[in-house]
Design a protein around this nucleic acid. Sequence first.
DNA 1: TCACTCATGTAAGTTGTTACATGATTCC
DNA 2: GGAATCATGTAACAACTTACATGAGTGA
Lengths: 189, 189
Amino acid sequence: MRVDSSALADTLRGMSIQHALLTSLLEQPSTGYALATRFDRSMGYFWQATHQQIYRELGRMAQAGWIAALDTGAAGRRKKTYQVLESGRLELLRWVEQPLPAGLSSEALLVKLRAAAVVGTQGLKAQVLALIAQRQARLEAYLAIEQRDFTDSAQTVAQQLRHQVLRRGIMLEESWLQWAHGVLPLLQD
Amino acid sequence: MRVDSSALADTLRGMSIQHALLTSLLEQPSTGYALATRFDRSMGYFWQATHQQIYRELGRMAQAGWIAALDTGAAGRRKKTYQVLESGRLELLRWVEQPLPAGLSSEALLVKLRAAAVVGTQGLKAQVLALIAQRQARLEAYLAIEQRDFTDSAQTVAQQLRHQVLRRGIMLEESWLQWAHGVLPLLQD
DNA sequence: TCACTCATGTAAGTTGTTACATGATTCC
DNA sequence: GGAATCATGTAACAACTTACATGAGTGA
């Protein structure tokens, strides 16, 4: 599948670029350049992975034995098409099954789902349930703040602006929760 | 073309810790420690900053003359309460009014709204309208992909997982759009 | 007194950004 | 032949993360 439909995270800050690349390469062996443009076209709005980052991570993964490069250029042409080796597939599987650190990015779960489409969904249901618990708790905290601070009938513009910022947080939690409940039926216990 | 690196912070990245801190300090003069914990509460859902980052930026802003520290601890107690100076307020105003670079983070607009609650909403309506146009375009692109790739009645689990990832992106765009339309009435032309 | 919170920082290491650099291929 | 695109890198610098370090105040 194309990376387009996976490129939906708000931001992938702080999460491993390597596992996203492994997933892409499992879907289709590619050159670093192709990966970079695919990321740029589809994730460009919110995740700019520069070609330097991608080449660096490809180099590391090659050294770790997760992927291997085939020289596919004509004589003298430097062009490396990378493909995932068994140890890379196992690493991706390990990462998918490993619980996410508490309080951390739901965006990582999107990458995990895409990876799971390739290596299997073991252990993901628990992670989605953990996400739900976390988001639910936050939603309730935000709603409590809203009740406390923004229920006056007469509010200044400044208060209404702050309310809208909180409102965005509330909508975000609700949106994640709605999504997560829709994902659950696809996952094994 | 060469770009001055000090201008990069907000020109290219659209989002600056400094302006978020200025806003918080205008709302209430505080210590770095208080900012770190308050930040968690008020903007924690879209932005986390460590205390090291905050102390570093406070130091820089103090050096730039945007803020000033009052020693508020008892004798021997090191405790600095920062407050915003006029040049800091002007800088924040400048940043709020300056259009966001195209394609960049909607989260910056949340920070701008909070700042606008303190320094005024000049120029923000155009930025929210730009956000709407951008999000709408992306939503349509995602919906087109959904139509093209996920309308089969019989889908494998792998396909359904990928569909859910796309679904998350669609929901995110819709959620932003709904929010942005609610914010518009608060802003001046 | 002991644990916890308040409060500020330094240092080392990793990651990300920007500029610089090279050369082949493809299409007009 | 020239421009755009394909393709891969190095080097310098900026930002971020994690661990370490210190010490005062507060409440049980």
